[in-house]
Amino acid sequence: MKSVTLTIALLAALMLNACGQPKVKVPEQVKTAFTKKFPNAKHVEWGKESETEWEAEFRINGMEYSANYDASGKWLETESEISKKDLPESIKNTITKDFSGYKMDEAEISETRDGVFYEIKLEKKNEALEIVFDKSGKVIKQKKIDEDEEDND
């Protein structure tokens, strides 16, 4: 009888834990700023990007986006995936010229207060790079990605 009671208690605790995940409490000013910038957003899910930054993942017209805000509601960035064919020719040319032998794994377009940028992950054998380009194809930032970082993305 004790084992049955213990089993039931354990199952109840597991069910409560699985169903009772707390939702994040998004500051009202962040939600208001988001709704004003993206009034047509659907399926919005909020999370914390860092201690001081909120991230909304959402859809508009079937496309997936993410937008980041600081705690005061200031918009920081919007990102979405982009296909290779939709990249500016200038970026394709820079990849062909300066990153020969690398294959594009994924690409995102990122809009910030500073402009539009393209974040591209390139792979070659056991090496992966994350490159940020401006519209003209100029490399703004480049970093090597290790396997641990890839798993956390």
Rank of each mutant, 00 (worst) to 15 (best):
K84R: 13
L16K: 02
M1C: 09
V30T: 04
M1E: 10
K141G: 00
Q29D: 15
A107N: 00
I140P: 03
E81L: 09
T32S: 06
V132D: 04
K97T: 12
L6Y: 08
E127D: 15
N40H: 10
K42Q: 12
S80T: 06
I140W: 08
F133H: 01
D148A: 13
A71F: 13
D134H: 01
P88I: 12
D70A: 05
N40G: 03
S136P: 02
E77W: 06
F38K: 13
K23L: 10
K121N: 15
G20A: 02
M15Q: 14
D148R: 11
S100N: 07
D86H: 12
A128Y: 08
I60W: 12
A71M: 08
K31I: 07
T96M: 07
V24L: 05
E77C: 14
F34H: 06
A56P: 02
A41F: 05
F99Y: 09
I8A: 10
L6D: 08
T112K: 05
A71L: 12
E89D: 11
A12H: 10
I8Q: 03
A67W: 13
G101K: 00
T35E: 13
K42L: 10
M15T: 09
N61Q: 07
K103T: 08
D86Y: 15
K143V: 10
D114Q: 15
N93M: 14
E55L: 04
V30E: 03
D151P: 01
K138S: 04
E79P: 02
L129H: 01
E77L: 13
R59Y: 06
F133C: 00
T94A: 07
K2G: 09
A9H: 05
E123F: 07
S90C: 03
